[in-house]
Design a protein around this nucleic acid. Structure first.
Lengths: 212, 212
DNA sequence: GCTCTGGGTGATTCCCGTTTAGTGTCAGGT
DNA sequence: ACCTGACACTAAACGGGAATCACCCAGAGC
């Protein structure tokens, strides 16, 4: 009842994370909190507590908070990229490829709203451009994969308006528009998500691409 | 040269703002800083300094920081609303109304990127739903004004896909998509804004609305 | 003269991300 | 067996945000 109070900090100390083990632990905890509470809610201290480690320890493995969250974003985009890569290798019509890529894109956004916001919405205006470079590069590769079939379509003279470049950007933007609005303004009276995706896809595909 | 150092806080004190004068002063200063430095950059302290008043004084006139910035957003949307109201009263075809409203919307966004982000992008995930109510209501009225002609078009059986409700949302979202991406991701290789607006409008109008 | 009131203030609180100055542990060379 | 240095980690502190507190004071109305 007397002593045994001088040493608890020692016993409470978390054992070493055996190199990069700890890094994964941090990311896992951060992702859970981030998905549940968004960018602002995922504080360094909360993440550290979840891992069972002091907040300072996170700086052993990551330069700063943004790097932790962008890492999460990176992993998410990699999934998106792999979907696009897989689709672009399917032996199907370029138009069908475009449609499926956009569909997958919107579903991805609805399935991972916080991550989507982190990466694709300006929610992170605080994050400097350079820090986003890694994620941004992945995003570019996603877009490139998507641009391929569009260029095919353009080359076939089936583009109703714009260039391959601007058409690709507009197609992407239309899908981004609907998902980002639904995600960031959940209180509005939105039509069912399925219907919105459908109408967006139909409208924008028919509007930009000549069918046949 | 000796004293005159004990009293400056007194002489430096700003005279009373004569009621609601001060409120306008604060809004003006806040808007300037906010437009120049965005949401995060417009801190209470900076705004107060610009007005020449202590940070606490702002809480005399506004409940909190968000209310100040949302007030700015409100004024901006009012402009947008008045444009829509004016357009909806013009004696022109409903389709032309829709096109002009969307065009005005995108130009407004490009002209007021920070304000647009504040109001329409999730950059303010920290702002609680209820606080946004006033702005949100104005947004609804804007959308209603826009929905009018769309309903006309739907009633005329000229909607290629979706309902009046979902078509209106998708049209809006497409325009939101392109402007929000260009605004929040300025580092990407975007096609010229004019071209993007043109392609978006053409694509989405032809895709959703039967011409004639 | 007096009080009451409302715009104003400095100090304080709490939380954030980040930095500093360490501490304990262990692998490997001697 | 002993040093040594790298490493994972820590408590404490810093600076800066929003917001709140307990006051203060000039002036209007009596």
């Amino acid at each position: 009842m007397t002593v045994a109070l001088k040493k608890p900090p020692r016993s409470a100390r978390k054992p070493k994370g055996d190199g990069h083990m700890r890094r994964g632990e941090i990311l896992a905890a951060a992702e859970k909190i981030f998905i549940a509470e968004g960018y602002a809610g995922a504080t360094i201290r909360k993440i550290a507590d979840a891992v069972g480690v002091s907040s300072t320890a996170l700086y052993m493995h990551f330069r700063d908070k943004d790097q932790i969250l962008l890492e999460i974003g990176k992993e998410a985009i990699e999934k998106l990229l792999s979907i696009n890569v897989a689709l672009s290798q399917e032996p199907i019509d370029a138009v069908e490829k475009v449609r499926r890529m956009l569909d997958a894109y919107m579903r991805f956004a609805f399935d991972n709203p916080n991550t989507y916001q982190l990466v694709f919405c300006g929610s992170n205006e605080a994050i400097s451009i350079e820090k986003q470079q890694a994620v941004s590069d992945l995003g570019d590769r996603c877009f490139d994969e998507f641009s391929g079939p569009i260029r095919e379509i353009a080359a076939a003279g089936r583009l109703k308006t714009g260039t391959a470049e601007s058409a690709a950007q507009v197609l992407w933007a239309a899908c981004h528009g609907i998902v980002s609005l639904v995600i960031t303004k959940p209180s509005r009276n939105w039509a069912p998500a399925e219907e919105l995706m459908q109408v967006t896809l139909d409208g924008v595909m028919h509007g930009l691409i000549a069918d046949r």
